[in-house]
Structures are given as structure tokens and as C-alpha cells.
């Protein structure tokens, strides 16, 4: 993987490179080099803390879209065993941006569903930049129904800019496919754990996002529309994306506050892309922690809890004495 850096990561990375060089010079004889290394390490720690404790929502959006960020299939390798992919919606075709399969999480058999982005140009095209078509959502629904039938819990990973806006997608009912998943997931008789691992883009994200526990990685985002899309509509200027990201409050701490998500999964220092293994370990632990209590919950109670969770989302002013 070619490592790439965001602008605000640059000062940290430059210092890290210098540190690497110094470490190579250090043969244990020169006291000055040792001292220099110590100083540099301190400095890196300080700058990293400064940058990462003051991230803007737009910077977090960039981290969520970071080209080196772990994707669904990376986490499949890091957190799961015996993955078997399942293909196709049995009606039209297989949709590669949406991946479904059986997997084992610490011995617990689950059905895994999520969006997959591509790393290089070919992969990106093959995965349609992580934007699913209706048949992708219908494949997900087919597999979820199977999970219900065979009493397997469902884990979904959200990482998409949104559902694909194309002619074919509209012809084949993109809106119906999304809507159907929302309805069916809301009363699917098996536990569902949702994890936003990168970009949670609009209805295309939510279409696999209705569940019992909603987790979000620390530097992921979840929004009603992309900051660019919002800026283009409300400001008629995509350059206002940064402001739109601030306004829409799309980060994990924001959404925890609004009751949209249940827990935030901390990421390694500098973001998940700096240490895939560590990110995978934390994610795995969080998934188990969220899933295990659900497994013993009676289904009617589970469904009532899921219904109430989404039923109560929203901010409403009711005048005193209001009927509803």
C-alpha cells in the first residue's frame, strides 16, 4: 500500500521521517544522537496531541476517507475467521460494493454485511467507489433474511459515500431497495450490530444501518448528505464543504450526544490508518462487547428495544397540553 498523507498530518510525518533517519544513525555510541532522538520523540508526541485534540469536523471527514484507512475486507482479516462470501441478489446481479458473508468472531458465527471501497484505481472502479446499487441492498436483505432463518446475528460495517446515483440505479428502484431494508431491519428477528468504520453517507449507509447497537469509529462520520452535497445545495458552492461539515455535526461525539449512536470506538494514535492491527483489535473487542448481551435477549424484547431506539430519535418542541 502506498502511504499517503493529509495536509494536517504533514508536520507529524515529516518529524517521524527525521526520527527514522536519526534512529538509523544511532549505533549506540553517539550521546548527541540519543539526546536528539529523545527530543524529537517528545516533540512528535506534543505536535500529534495538538493536531489530534483540535481536529475540525472537516479534518475528521478527511480521516474517515483516508486512502490508507482500513476497509471492510481489511477488518475481515483482522477481526474474523473463516469468512465465506455470498454473492448476488438472486434477481439481477452481484453488486461488488456491497459484501456479504458468513464469518466467525471469536468463535461466534455471524453474518457479516458491509460496503467495500477500492484501494487502487482498478479496485475502486470494480467496487464502484463503495456506492451500492439496488441489487447490493437487495443482496444484503436476502442474506439478512437468511441470518434470521438460521438464527445468526448480523454485523454490518458502514463505509460508503452514499447509494449510487445512476440511471440504472433509479430504473431498478434505488429508493425502494433502501426503504425496504429500513423496514425489514427494524423487525428482523435476530440481533444486529452496526459499526460505522469510515464514511456513513446518507440513505445508502442507513440501508444497512438499522440495528440494536450502533457503533462508530472515533474518526468516522455519519451524515444525511455529504458535506460537499450539502454545500452545493445550500450555499451553491462546493468549496463550503468545510462549513457544511461543521454545521451538520457529523462526528462520533456529536452523534453520541444526539442519541444516534451508542458507543464510540477509540482509534490508535493518529487514526486507524496508522495502525490497522491496533484498530482491528479495538473494533473486535467493541463488537463482542456490543453483541454478547444481545445474544441472550428474548427476541420480542430485542425488537421492542430496537423499535424504541429509532422511535425516540429526533428533536421536537411540543406545546404544553399537546395531544401527541
Amino acid at each position: 500500500m502506498i502511504l499517503q498523507y493529509l495536509d494536517f498530518e504533514r508536520p507529524i510525518v515529516d518529524l517521524e521521517n527525521r526520527l527514522e533517519q536519526l534512529k538509523r544513525l544511532d549505533d549506540g555510541t553517539d550521546k548527541g544522537v540519543k539526546e536528539e532522538i529523545g527530543k524529537l520523540e517528545k516533540k512528535i508526541g506534543k505536535i500529534r496531541k495538538e493536531v489530534f485534540s483540535n481536529l475540525t469536523r472537516w479534518q475528521i471527514t478527511q480521516l474517515a476517507r483516508h486512502p490508507n484507512r482500513p476497509y471492510l475486507l481489511d477488518y475481515v482479516n483482522l477481526c474474523f475467521r473463516n469468512f465465506i462470501e455470498l454473492h448476488g441478489d438472486r434477481a439481477f446481479r452481484d453488486d461488488p460494493p456491497l459484501v456479504c458473508g458468513f464469518a466467525e468472531l471469536e468463535g461466534q458465527r455471524v453474518v457479516l454485511i458491509g460496503q467495500q471501497k477500492g484501494r487502487n484505481t482498478n479496485e475502486k472502479i470494480q467496487r464502484n467507489f463503495g456506492m451500492a446499487n439496488p441489487e447490493g441492498y437487495r443482496k444484503a436483505l436476502r442474506v439478512m433474511k437468511m441470518a434470521e432463518k438460521f438464527r445468526l446475528p448480523v454485523i454490518t460495517f458502514i463505509d460508503t459515500p452514499g447509494a449510487f446515483p445512476g440511471i440504472g440505479a433509479e430504473e431498478r428502484g434505488q429508493s425502494e431497495a433502501i426503504a425496504r431494508n429500513l423496514l425489514e431491519m427494524s423487525h428482523l428477528k435476530t440481533p444486529i450490530v452496526v459499526a460505522v468504520i469510515g464514511e456513513g453517507g446518507s440513505g445508502g449507509a442507513l440501508a444497512i444501518g438499522v440495528g440494536d447497537e450502533i457503533l462508530m469509529m472515533e474518526y468516522s462520520v455519519y451524515s444525511v448528505i455529504s458535506p460537499e452535497g450539502c454545500a452545493s445545495i445550500l450555499w451553491r458552492d462546493t468549496a463550503k464543504a468545510e462549513v457544511a461539515a461543521e454545521m451538520m455535526k457529523i462526528t462520533a461525539p456529536d452523534l453520541k450526544k444526539f442519541g444516534v449512536i451508542d458507543r464510540i470506538i477509540p482509534e490508535p494514535l493518529g487514526g486507524a490508518h496508522r495502525d490497522h492491527k491496533a484498530a482491528g483489535d479495538t473494533l473486535k473487542a467493541a463488537l463482542l462487547e456490543a453483541l454478547l448481551p444481545l445474544l441472550s435477549m428474548p427476541i420480542p424484547q430485542l425488537l421492542e428495544r430496537r423499535y424504541r431506539k429509532f422511535r425516540e430519535m429526533g428533536a421536537i418542541r411540543r406545546k404544553a397540553g399537546g395531544a401527541a
Partner: peptide
């Protein structure tokens, strides 16, 4: 569509309304 000025809470109304229709 969803009202952008209420952010992700608007998005969640899609799930809320669909769940009610499920019942």
C-alpha cells in the same frame, strides 16, 4: 427529501418512519 438543517437526526427519521410502517 430529508431536511439537511437537522443533520443526521433527519436521516434517522427514515428509519423511524419505516419501522412504524413495519409494525
Amino acid at each position: 427529501g430529508a431536511r439537511m438543517q437537522e443533520g443526521t437526526l433527519s436521516l434517522m427519521q427514515m428509519a423511524k418512519t419505516s419501522a412504524a410502517l413495519g409494525r
